[in-house]
Write a protein that binds this DNA or RNA. Sequence first.
DNA 1: ATTACTTTTTCCAATGGATTTATTAACTAG
DNA 2: CTAGTTAATAAATCCATTGGAAAAAGTAAT
Lengths: 403, 403
Amino acid sequence: MQRRTGDLKLIQELNRSIILNMIREHGPISRSEIAKKNKISPTTVTAAVNEFIREGLVSEVGTGKSSGGRKPILIRFNPDGGFLISVSVTNSAIKVAELNLQAAIRKKDLFPVHDVKGDELIEFTLRSIEEFIGRLSDLTKCVGISITAPGIVDAAKGVIRYNSKLDLINVPAKTLFESRFGLKTYLDNDVNAMVLAEKKYGKSIHSTNLVYVTIDEGLGTGILVNGSIFRGHHGGAGELGHTSISPDGIPCECGNNGCLENYVHWPAIRSKIEQQVNIGYPSLIRDLLEQEQTPLTPQMFKTAIKQGDPLATSIMEEVASYLSIGIANVINLFNPETVILGGVIAEDNPQLINQIQTAVSKRALHILTEGLEIRTSSFAEDADLIGAAAVLLQDLFQFSLHA
Amino acid sequence: MQRRTGDLKLIQELNRSIILNMIREHGPISRSEIAKKNKISPTTVTAAVNEFIREGLVSEVGTGKSSGGRKPILIRFNPDGGFLISVSVTNSAIKVAELNLQAAIRKKDLFPVHDVKGDELIEFTLRSIEEFIGRLSDLTKCVGISITAPGIVDAAKGVIRYNSKLDLINVPAKTLFESRFGLKTYLDNDVNAMVLAEKKYGKSIHSTNLVYVTIDEGLGTGILVNGSIFRGHHGGAGELGHTSISPDGIPCECGNNGCLENYVHWPAIRSKIEQQVNIGYPSLIRDLLEQEQTPLTPQMFKTAIKQGDPLATSIMEEVASYLSIGIANVINLFNPETVILGGVIAEDNPQLINQIQTAVSKRALHILTEGLEIRTSSFAEDADLIGAAAVLLQDLFQFSLHA
DNA sequence: ATTACTTTTTCCAATGGATTTATTAACTAG
DNA sequence: CTAGTTAATAAATCCATTGGAAAAAGTAAT
């Protein structure tokens, strides 16, 4: 990341980025209004807008209300003036999709994976994308590929540093994909991408400090600081799952005691349920297990909560109580505007969210909980793909002094 | 904070800031080397440097080594080409000092306060500065005043939001000082200022993610993210003292249980010592108290530790153990390059630092502790004044797209 | 309908930064 | 002492923004 120096090209890029973002975020809007709102001369706006029209990025869409003179010509952003390809690597499938420049999904494909790991998985991903791209008519308007993956990711270098489940260690994904497809490629951690999507295209457009927590097989965290993904020194920031909430709590394989993750992730919940069911505790879940003869799923747990099952409810309350300690700690440290809860355990689980909201407001500093929102994610199953798009589009549209 | 638009003035400011910072951080350096290293044309560098010489910001200082042609003329930053006034509001005194443009203290005065609070304290501070300024010969080269205060501070608006001990609530300090002295005034929280000073003028020049923890009457925290002070949404970020380390721990007046602060601040340490001394536990501290007939001081505690006193050592170990949980949590969340420990309890207390280092390396994720440094602060008692200077100088020298 | 006034958009010359291309200055090596 | 090299400056050129004028397209009142 080299710092740019000032020249005419730089001021043009800066101004065009301001103008385009104005149209994207506040369009339809007239040339003269853009000029007034940003204190840029009308001449400059005209030149920039006409260039955008030539490139197909924006279009004129009729006229606005006159305030006593010539009617303004309204300009709007053209989200289908280009597209990008989002790729999400998960434990169960490779998801590939085409999205427009507003992160709306146009086409989507799922390539299930079964026990494919390491280099094989990467090769499978490349072939999946190849197949997907093969069905597209025209690649000239493709602005790039964006990949998200779980685990520790070096976004700047485009390398997947570490993912034990998928057996990925130091995979130079960015280089690999760029040489294969000749398209600019981005890579980021899945939760990082999702939290950025919440700011850019979700319910938190006006927030700049967000914390995103997912509860699944593990506890994932993404943090937005001043509107940008916060990575820390090694890209390892946001390990909320391994913050300790109890000095002599459950020993974790990381070496610490009382790591939050071990109290709230699905394996912990499952084993608690199974333990109680095994010793004969009467519960709706026991009935479900006997009926269906399938292994216990998070879905069953959530169904039981909704139906007021005492066992499920009490376990949920315990999870909420632990989680609230960790979330209150994050709030006291980061002072975010919003905390977003995602992942199978939290999604479609209003009782859990409720419990957390009340517990957190007791534990976190009251100055910091004023106006604080704790809610579920804006996007359901497509959060990862929209997140990937957000990462690419942020780079595409946001002016930066770094080259 | 309005975003700037691109014009000729902007590119000049950007380039001059790059050139001046090059001289500040890598000087003495020749014009041609600046041009090469930053890919700015020699003509531009010459024009900028000559302007700086005219302003007295830099000087030519002889010639460098020739590599086969004309010898380069070396340019160095002129730290005494201007000065600023730092003010630190503490519980015991108003500290006022004159510092040069490299944050070196030139003159310093202490104005002790006894039971002066609220508006009276502000008035006392203003008069103290007036007295200090009265003794200065020439104010034309003064670039501004920078104030640090403990408590919750809105740096952008220049308002002291809340400080219960000094009875300061919503004091518009910036406006107050600017109208009184006609000098551009800055305001920030004391620990925020100190952590910035560590990066700008201390041992962490090359770090961009720092955490600074002070242990005194309370637990203060300052966080540097990507080289800038991290404030969060309300400016309330970094409340490490109120993160919980134990679900059912000591109840805190903030409403939470197990707040770290209550385990490690001086009042907690003092009451533990007194408790043991009162029940007759033999200790060096008991002897000191009987000899001097004065109340217990942190200094006595540290002396006892150094002399291997078992009571002091065991209490210190307990404090280190609790503190390590909190610090490990911060490391897992922020992934900093360095953690700095300050305040009376940590300064000049190598045993404590040692204990914390080993405990943290066990508790924090090992990927994140690789290369991590835990150390004491670079500046002793003047950390607050140098910090204030760092805040002002950062604004003076660092180019920003925000006006 | 006509006229006076507004607002939006565009054209054009002027501005003022940076860069490019000489030119001068100052030194090294043979 | 001369050829070659590097550093610093000067003059000419480049180019994105700007401000003012002009054109385009309206409104409102006579």
